[in-house]
Design a protein around this nucleic acid. Structure first.
Lengths: 212, 212
DNA sequence: CCGCGGATCAAACCTTTGATGGATGCCGGT
DNA sequence: ACCGGCATCCATCAAAGGTTTGATCCGCGG
C-alpha cells in the first residue's frame, strides 16, 4: 500500500509545526502540505492528491464548524476529514459529525493517538478520542435535547442578561409567558435556574455565547 | 554572548513539538528541555541552567494561572517567564502580569514573534503580543474594571449555574458573604443581575466560559 | 372525527435574589 | 499608626425569579 497523503489545516503556526513534527516521521504517512485557513484547505484538497485532512474546528474568531462542512461538500474527491479541536464540547462534536467528519481528536492527544487516527481514517474507519466517545454515548443516552424556536429565542435573551420583564417587552408577550418558556427549557435541560440553563445550553451549543 | 537556554512547558504534546520545531533552529536559542506539567517545569527550572521559560497558562483542567506564580516564586535562580496562552482574555493577562511574567504570547503567534519574545525576555526586556498590548491599553482607558480574586471565583461559580446557597457551601462561607461579593461585582460591572454579570464578564474575558 | 401532544399564553403562589446599611478582622502602603 | 481595600458576617425587605395549574390553538395520527 502506498503512503497516506495528509493535509494539515490549522490557523496556529505552532500547532501546524507540531503536527508536522509529530506525523512527518511516521512510516506510511506523508505530510503533503499545511495551510492556515479553511479556504486554503478547500483549494488545496481540490487538487485531488490528498487522502486525509486534519483540520482545526475553530477557524478564526467566532467561526463555527461550517468550515469542515464546506470542505467535505465542496471537494469532489472527498478526502477523509479528521477534526481537531481544543475542547470537547458537545456542540463541536455534533457539528463535526453532522459535517461528515470521520474522526474527532483533542489537541492534547498524545502522538500515537494522532497517528492511529490518521491511519484509521485512511482505511475508512473512524477514530474518536476516548473522552469524546464518552460524551457521544452520554448524549445518546439522554436523548436529543432540542429546544423549540421560541424557547431558544427566550433563552438567548436570558444569556445576554435581560430580565423576564425585558424579554417579555422585547417579544411582545407577557412576563408569564416568558416564565412558561423558561420552565420548559429548565425541564428539557434538567436544571432549575436561568443561569444554569445558560451554562448548559452554551456548553451544548444550543445557544451562541453572548452575541448581542 | 552565549546561547539562550530555553525550557518549554505545555501539556499539549503537539504544541511542545511545534514550539521545538519553530525555536530549535534559531541561532542563539537552545531548547534545553520540554515538560508537560507545571510541577515538572518547576523541578526542571530548579536545576538552574534555564534562562527563559515558555509556559502555557492553562495547565490542566480548571487550573488557574497560579502555576506561573509558583514557578517564579519557587525557583531561586528566577528565570524569565513568558506566558503562552490560547486566548487573550483580560483575566489571563492580569493573572500573568501579577504572577511576574515578563512576556505574554498567544498560541496563534507567528514564529518570528515567538523568537523575538524569547530574545527580548533573555535580555530583560518584556514582550507583549500586539493583540495583548491593545487590550491592556483598552483596559487603562476604560478604567480599572478588575474584580478581586474572590469576586472572580464567586462569579465563575455563578456562571456554571450554581445558586448562592451552593456557592456558599462550596467556598465554606455564608450565603450572606456570597451576596456581598456579588453586590460588589454588580457595582463594578454596572449591572443588576447575576445573568447580566455573567454576560458582561464573559464578553470582557474576566471569567472563562463554563469550564467546570 | 377527535383526542393527544407540543407550543403558546396566563394568573396565582412560594422561593431566591438583590438592595441597604451596617460590623469585624486582616493586610499593605503612605 | 492610620487608612483603604478586601473578605467575612448579619438582618431585613422589595423585587425578580421559579412553580404550579390550567387555558387556548394547532397539526398529526389513530
Amino acid at each position: 500500500m502506498t503512503s497516506i497523503r495528509l493535509l494539515l489545516a490549522d490557523d496556529h503556526p505552532v500547532v501546524r509545526a507540531g503536527l508536522r513534527a509529530v506525523l512527518e516521521g511516521e512510516p506510511g504517512i506523508i505530510v503533503a502540505d499545511d495551510v492556515a485557513t479553511a479556504e486554503a484547505a478547500i483549494e488545496r484538497a481540490a487538487l485531488g492528491d490528498i487522502d486525509v485532512v486534519l483540520m482545526d474546528l475553530q477557524f478564526g474568531p467566532g467561526m463555527g464548524g461550517s468550515a469542515a462542512t464546506r470542505l467535505i461538500t465542496a471537494v469532489p474527491g472527498a478526502p477523509r476529514v479528521i477534526v481537531l479541536t481544543t475542547y470537547d464540547t458537545e456542540a463541536d462534536i455534533v457539528a463535526a459529525v453532522e459535517a461528515g467528519a470521520c474522526g474527532y481528536l483533542l489537541k492534547d492527544a498524545p502522538p500515537d493517538e494522532l497517528t492511529a487516527a490518521v491511519r484509521a481514517a485512511a482505511e475508512g474507519r473512524s477514530a474518536l478520542a476516548p473522552a469524546v466517545a464518552g460524551r457521544l454515548i452520554e448524549r445518546m443516552r439522554v436523548g436529543a435535547t432540542s429546544l423549540s424556536a421560541r424557547e431558544t429565542e427566550v433563552l438567548s435573551l436570558v444569556a445576554t442578561g435581560r430580565s423576564n420583564q425585558q424579554i417579555a417587552a422585547e417579544l411582545f408577550v407577557s412576563e408569564a409567558t416568558v416564565k412558561s418558556h423558561l420552565v420548559h427549557v429548565f425541564t428539557k435541560l434538567d436544571v432549575d435556574s436561568r443561569t444554569a440553563a445558560v451554562a448548559v445550553a452554551t456548553r451544548r451549543g444550543l445557544i451562541r455565547p453572548t452575541p448581542g
